[in-house]
Each structure stands twice: as C-alpha cells, then as structure tokens.
Design a protein around this nucleic acid. Structure first.
Lengths: 185, 185
DNA sequence: CTGATCTCAGTACTACTGACATTA
DNA sequence: CTAATGTCAGTATTACTGAGATCA
C-alpha cells in the first residue's frame, strides 16, 4: 500500500517550510515547489487510477486528446512532441504503445518523407470517449478548490510556464487586414 | 535536445482548454491539472539540473533535507516514507543510493529490531549544504511569480492536498495545560 | 553540407505488485 | 496470531544520451 492507513496529523510540507525558514532562510519558493511536486504525484495517481481500466496512462491520454483535437485527427510525431513537451524518444515510445493497442495508426507523411503522421483510429476514438468520462468523473483528481480558485491556480502556473520559456507571449495587433496574433519570443 | 530551439508561439494548454470547452464541456479542472503536470516537469528539470552536479536528484535531496531537520539527524525508514509520501521500496532504493555515495548510514534501531535508522553523515551534511546553495541559486526553478503569488500558489495546492487526504486538519485547542494541537482525521 | 525527423540501444529513476523474513 | 518493517525480484513508465538512417 502506498498511503498509510492514517494520514499524517500535520502538513509535512508546512513543517519543513517552518524549519527551513528558521535554519536556512526564506522558504517561500521551496514550499511552493514542494507543493507542486506533491500535488502532481497525487493527481497523477488519481488520473492514472481512473484511466488504467481503459489501458491508458495520463501521458497516453494526453496524446489521444491532442490527436482528437486536430482537424484531420492526425499529427506529425514532431508536432506532438512540441505540443506535449515530450522528448522525441518518449513520443516514439508512447505512440508505439498506442499503436500496439490499436488506438492510433502510423502513416507516412505525404509531403515530407522524413516525417510520420499519427492518426487516431475509430477504436482510439471510442476508448478516448470512455476514458474522458472516467477522468471527468473524478474531476481529474482535483478536489478542494472552488472553480474560482481553480482558475487562479491555472493563472499562476501559466505565469510560471511563460516565464520559463514554455511558450511565447502572444499579442493581438490591429492591422488593415484585421486582427493578427503576433508572438514575441 | 528536449526543448525546441523556438518555443511555441501560443500556450498549448490554453488552446487545448479552449477546444475542450467547445467540444466537451467545462475545462476548468482539466486546465489546472494539465498545468500542474507541466509545471512539475519544468521544476523537476531545473532542480535536477542544479542538483546533478552534486550527485543528487530532487527525491534524494528531499530525503537529505528531512534527515538534516531531525533533532538527532536520524530517522527510521518508515518515518521517511510517511513524511515524503514514498513507497517503501522507493525508500529502500533512495537510501541505497545515498548510502552507496556515503551521504547516509544505516544503523539498527535500538528499541525496535524490525526498524532501520538512517543517519546523515558528515559528508552528507556537506553535500547537502552545497546542494542547497545550488538549488536556492535558481530559486528552485520557480520564476515569474511575486512572493505574494508564490504564497497564494502554496495555499491553493495545500488545500488540494488536505482535501485529498494527504494530511489531517490540525486545530489548536486551549487546555488547562496550555495549547494543544489536535488532529482531526 | 546543414539540419530536421524518427528510431534504436541502453541507462537512470521512480512507482508498484507480490513474496518473504524478522519481530513487535 | 496479527500487524508492522524492510528487502528483493520483477514489471511498467518516462526522461535522456548517443548513434545512425533518411531526407528536406
């Protein structure tokens, strides 16, 4: 068993932050980072539990979602890697597994013979729908926050990602041809 | 290389949330969970980069910190597992590695012959100090937030953990003997 | 030729299952 | 006897390095 029968009677992160601030210094960043690590572990555990019945992990589920959002239900491996922030070899591994399970299909890219397209299959579409129901059923594992607080959480984490270079700023400009989004990298 | 030469010109999570809300439904929880996953990946990458020069991972660093905070610089394996929310076999693995590197030492528990105490060595103490400098130097990888926003982030994530049963509520009661913290599980 | 795309082999790390010996 | 503590063997994932084939 992973979790003890009885949870700790105190917050271990808050206690560590207390000791940190008296012995080392400012514990603000340390406490936030440790919280992110721990909450990610909790959320991954819950989502994987909801998805395991469908033969999926959160990583593979994300890949399926990404494909289902594509207009033609297909994307190049390289695009998937960039969107999901995955290492090229991780994309290969995840697509391998999805293909073995018949949820996606590899096809040669018509224009670029270096590239490989990954296409969602009908089976993949069905499994994805069932998996989505399962994961929504447990609120993606996220409990304890109001919708407003959840949005605040998203905003704060988005700031961290933007400042970490995860993506560029996007600004809307007015041009004679209409609105245009310009990225500042 | 992991990260592309040029970051995406848009926020992939925000775009996925947009598509999700038009095709599936409320994307509030989905967006927050995906953000936690991605930020954790970013923070782990940055902290591990800062720690790798010292032969540590974030998990091993956390274990050393925990030991250094103990009054006698030693804790039972089981206590470490509960505090760090680690699987028993993960504790064994992490302590194995730390012991191989001479940063901790295993010792029999004086009172409970089933248990094993793990003690921080002088070497471990030195490595920990250097590693802490390194990890503080990069702000634990957390950038883009003001101290107040960082605190808000901690508060929100702490709510999630509390509601997920990660730890119990702690309430301070006044008793004839003074204040007493009581846990409600 | 340079650089992008994808795969393969191999390593490191962590989570988890199941089994097992020891001991409270 | 029941339950807790640690360890071991083995499996599954994902991240990453380095090399190499293919092709824009």
């Amino acid at each position: 068993m992973v979790s003890p029968a009885v949870p700790l009677p105190f917050d271990p992160i808050a206690r560590a932050a207390d000791l940190w601030s008296t012995r080392i210094g400012d514990a603000t960043a340390m406490a936030a980072v440790t919280n992110v690590m721990r909450v990610q572990q909790i959320l991954l555990r819950k989502t994987d539990a909801a998805l395991s019945g469908h033969g999926l992990t959160f990583a593979r589920y994300e890949a399926l979602i990404l494909l289902s959002f594509a207009r033609t239900k297909r994307l190049a491996m390289s695009v998937m890697g960039r969107r999901l922030q995955l290492h090229p070899t991780s994309v290969t591994s995840i697509v391998d597994r999805l293909e073995t399970d018949g949820l996606v299909r590899r096809e040669p890219h018509p224009d670029d013979r270096r590239a490989t397209l990954v296409e969602l299959t009908a089976d993949g579409d069905q499994v994805l729908a069932a998996a989505t129901t399962a994961v929504i059923g447990v609120d993606f594992g996220l409990t304890g926050l109001t919708p407003a607080q959840t949005t605040t959480l998203t905003d704060l984490l988005t700031k961290v990602r933007r400042d970490s270079g995860d993506f560029c700023q996007e600004t809307t400009h007015e041009t004679p041809q209409g609105r245009r989004n310009v990225a500042h990298c």
